[in-house]
Each structure stands twice: as C-alpha cells, then as structure tokens.
Design a protein around this nucleic acid. Sequence first.
DNA 1: CTCCTCGACTCAGAAACGTTATG
DNA 2: CCATAACGTTTCTGAGTCGAGGA
Length: 701
Amino acid sequence: MKQSDRPSGVSSAVQCEAGGGGTHEDVKVDPDERNDGQQKPGSPEINNNKEKTRSKSSKQRHNHKERTADVKLCGEDENLCESVQVKKRRVKDEESPEKHDKNQSSGRKRKKTSSEHEKAEKNKKTKKDGDQEKKKKAEESDKWKWWEEGKSSDTQKWSSLEHKGPYFPPEYEPLPDNICFYYDGQPMKLSPATEEIVTFYAKMLDHEYTSKEVFQNNFFSDWKEEMTKEERKLIKMLSKCDFSQIHKYFVEKSEERKNMTKEEKQVLKEEASRLMEEYGFCLLDGHREKIGNFKLEPPGLFRGRGEHPKMGKLKKRIQPEDVTINCSQDSKIPAPPAGHHWKRVQHDNTVTWLASWLENIHGRPKYIMLNPSSKLKGEKDWQKYETARRLKMKVDSIRKQYRRDWTSREMKSRQRGVAIYFIDKLALRAGNEKDDESADTVGCCSLRVEHITLHRRLDGQEHVVEFDFLGKDSIRYYNKVPVEKQVFKNLKLFIKHKDPEDDLFDRITTVKLNKTLNECMPGLTAKVFRTFNASTTLQDQLNKLTTGGMTVEEKILSYNRANRAVAILCNHQRAAPKTFEKSMQLLQEKAVRNNHSDDGNRRATSSRLDSRVTRCLMLLEKKEKAVQRLSEQLKKLQLQETDREENKVIALGTSKLNYLDPRISVAWCKKHQVPVEKIYNKTQRDKFAWAIDMTDENFQF
DNA sequence: CTCCTCGACTCAGAAACGTTATG
DNA sequence: CCATAACGTTTCTGAGTCGAGGA
C-alpha cells in the first residue's frame, strides 16, 4: 500500500528530541525490565489488565471510583515541547467571540486595510473583461464584516435562509453503438443502468484500485444486484468481462477534451460560472454567502482510503426523493427537478446545512454546507482558536495533573494521564472506536499494543517509545520518542499480559477522556491540543526564524519552514509528487550546468584581463556581474533543491488551513512588512478575512 | 447512570484543473 | 513565439471528532 510505504521518520525532524536509525526487530520489553517496580503490593487492579480487547469487548468496562492518590510530582517537563512557554500576551477582550454574547450591536470598529492589496493585485490583469472586474470589486466592497457585529447565538445558526437547492449531476449518457462490452469474448449490449455501472469500472481500469481483490469482489456483487435477470444469468465472472474498449473510449474522450480550442473551453467555463451563479450561493440573514459543495456527488464506485473493506462498492445516484431541504419557512422553497419531489423540507435553524441525504455505502448523512468564507464557518473557526488560546492559560495545570495521574493507584487514571500526555506532546488525535466496516486505523485511545515498541535505550537515548501505526486516512505515523521514565514504566505496565491486538489503553475511551478534559476547562477536548500546539509552534518558530535583515523572500522561506514544523508535528503527509525524482534530477543537472558555465565565465574573465585592460574593463564588469548572477542563481537553485527535498512528503496546506491561528500569520506579516498575499492565496484570504481585518502586529496567540 | 447510535460538523489527501515558468 | 512541464489552486468526497438523546 503506497500510503504506508511513505518514508517515515519525517516526524522526527521537529519533534523535540527524536532519534534516528534503529531497527524494528527489538524485543518489546527487555526481560530484565519485566519486574521493574511499579507494581507495589497495595496497588489495585494492576494485573490482568486485558479489558478492552480489539474485537469488541471495549463496551463493558469497569468503572472504578476515582481514588487518585496524591503523590509527589515528577520534575518539571523538560521534555514537553518548548513551544509551551507562556509568552507575554495581550489578550484583547474585544477580540474574543466568546466574550461577546452581551453587547450584540456594540459594533467594534477596525481598520480596513487588507482588501487594498487585493485590488492592486487584480489590476495587473486588465486584459480580462472589464465587466468582471467591476463586478468583483463591487462584491468586495459589500463583503459582510460579520466579525464586527458581536457574537451570535450558539444554538440558533440563522434567522433566515434561502437557496436554490442542490445541483444534480447530468443524467447518464449511453455509450455509442460502436462501443461495446464483451463477455467471454462475445460483444454484449447491456441495459442502460448496468452499462452505467460498467463505465464506472472501465474508467478506473488503469488505477491500482481495480487490481485489488476486495475492490473487484465488492464491485462485482454490487454490479450483479443492478443487472437485469438476463444479464445476471449470463455474466458470472468478472474475469471474463472485457471493459477495454469502453476504457479506450473514455481515454480518447478525455484527450479530446484536453485538445479543445480556447473558444470551446471558454464556453464551458461560462457555463460553469452560470451554474455557480445560480446554485452556488444562498441568502443567509440577508447576506449572500457562498456554498461549499452545491453539486450533489455523482454516482460512481466508492474508493476508501487505505485497505478499506468497502472499496469498489457502488455509490448510487442520488434522487431528489433522497434529499432533505433545510431553509427558512418564509423563503422561496427550492423547486425539485420536474416530476420529482424532495424527501422532506424542513426549517431547522439550529443546524447549518442546506440539504442532506443518506449516502448508501455506510448509510450516513451527507450535507450541503457553506463555504469556509461564510460567517457560519468563520465564526466557528474563530471560536476554535479562542478555545485553543484559553488552553494556553490552563495548560500548565493540566500538565501537572496528568503527571500526577502517572503515579495514581488507579489504572484508569494512569492510562488517562499517559494518553493525554501523548495527545499533548505528540499531537495525536483522540482515536474514537471504529466499526469493522472501515479501514483499520487508530488514534490515541484506540492504539493497540502492536503499535508501540519500547526501547529501554535506543541510539543513545533512554526510554524511547517507537510508534508505528496507521492514522486518519491510513497515513502512517512513525516516530521514535524519548519519554519520561514514569511514562515508560506505565507503558510497560499497560502492555503486560496483553496480546499485540489488545488495546493499549483498555480502561479509557475518548468520551471519558474528553469528559475529564472538559472538567479542566470548559470546551476543552482532545483536538484542542492539536490546534493549541500547532499554533504555539508556529508562533515560536516564526519568532525564532525571522530576523531583522532578511529579504521578503527569506522571510517567506522562514514562514514556510515554521509552517513545515507544524505539518511535521501534525503528521500531515502527501504522496511524493509523481514527477518528483525526475524533476529533482533536472534541478540538479541545471545546477551542475550552471556551475560549469560559471567556471567558463571565470576563465574568460581572467584571460581578458590579461590582454587589453582598458577596453575590457567594461566587459569585465559585465562578466563579473554575470558570474555573480549565475552564482546567485546557483545558490537559489540549491536552496530550492533542499526546500523541495524537505517538502517531498510534507503537506503544508492542511495545517495552514485548519490548525494555525491566522492572526499569528497576519500579525507576522504586518510586523515584518510581508504582504499578506505572499502567504495566503485568494481562497485563504477569503477564509481568513476576519483575521486579516482585525489583527494588528502586536497580536500574540 | 452508562452505553450506544445518530447527527452534524471539522479536518484530510488525491485528483482535476488552471497558471506560470521553461526551453 | 509556442509547446510543454512544473507548479499552485480548486474541487471532491472520505474520515475523523464529539455532543445529544434514547434505551
């Protein structure tokens, strides 16, 4: 599986003190460590801790009363990320959405500097329709500054909502008569419904997916169910099906599309923007807001991530009769397609979605919701960062508490203490329980014994825990982390008498863990730690990496480095670009060539110097400049090279979009005179409009 | 009270698509 | 100047988190 094969250990680069090297073959626990003494005679329930086993028993767990002994704390965390140090902060009351419930209409006023840059940027492209330009500018000027209005209610999400309903994908277009499906070598005309399903498979033929047995089986059994009786009688084996002609047909079609003339492409583009204009927006509390996904998902074959047991299943076409519409009572109710009706029309203003349906693979609801630039999303986002900032105030006491739990007499508390420590230190996700109908991935609470290896000593470090598991989206998490001795002892205790497939933390669940966290601080849950640690890391790294005399380019490089540190912490990965090796090579070749011509220039320079000094002075200057330019270019290339290498499997976007308080970035931009559009593109600026508008250079997370 | 399911929302990387750099 | 490759942006939809509410 490609995802799991990714070069791992990426995580070690930034994580405070990870090591290198080391083998997988190590025994889990050195024998001589076995009776290393955490098990005092009086300790209750220490043995036989095999409660939550992988299969299902996680349901029935004992609940012991809290009897956490008040034991002395271990020494203060030198190991926790340095990011934690509390910076001098200026929490400006008026910037907190949470403190705003009362003065609804107080209308904070802020400078409105940011959109000016945008206009300047746009003016560069004057070749496009002047009309469009005007339109955009008009839109900009009446952008809704909801953040100046004070916080709105938590439960009621809107007071009026009007929209056109979802856009339905086009109907299936049957194949032309000369394109045929073959069974057992014989051409066969299929019923339209069956044929459509075949095209889904045929289109994917050169994808790795179709070679997987699970995929094939799921596909074939779902396909059979949709066949007519006659077809079912004939088609018995997938291996006798020949989709190649159909496959070829679609390849050619997409080729044609690529080779369309500019005019044809323009027509298509206009069509799309017309669609967007009609379906892409809604009216929420009197403001025109962009919708995130106004197009219903077309039918196709389900492609899960990783080793998904349901891959290849048929994702059915959504009918209007499957769709629930949510809008306000007095609004213009969207019209269903002719001859159809909605499943239901409701007017629930405690939710944010405009339409929903049940997806047939898992039977779970899916929604049409607003774009991140909308008030509904933006306000929530802002609130998220404010919660993370509140955690900043509380984090010291929480850390003290979980350290205390490491020596508790209760297994439950010890496990909770270690789990929160992992979540805090390593930015692990909570790790809810999952059913067997999805890929086998884990988070903190669902870690199993087989996912960690304990090394008493590794690469010159003590008490190293080696993590190796598949997380969300089946992305591999691989990291070797030195931990406190007490954590190490506890882990040894947790895995005692357990099988590899047993839960490491068998006495806790995400629900219980979050309940504890919520008692420490209202609104605190496991995922807040990710936001908190990500944002803190960014701020610290920016402070560390940005220095006075830097050029804008260098500053941006620093920003990207800081961003990368966060991405590594959060384990945000991507597949190495397909062309990576090749383009890397190209870059190197270029560098080499550059270097050579550099030499050539030098030689030329000196020889000329010998001959006619006066006349060549200008030439010399020129040449020197060329040399200088070339060596600068070379330096740039080398820089680019390392940057790219470092970035090979790191995805910066996810953290930038979801974990980094945009106000940190905006403040940094202002402080260092970096135009904000150098770090946020248009979409990102739209999403973070609130932060760009309200933040001054003194903002501290 | 706890467990368990469901619903709604955030977060995730791949792929498609568009733009810019390069040769 | 054009063709192509590289790169950045947008779309797509799957995969998590977490709270609510009923048994």
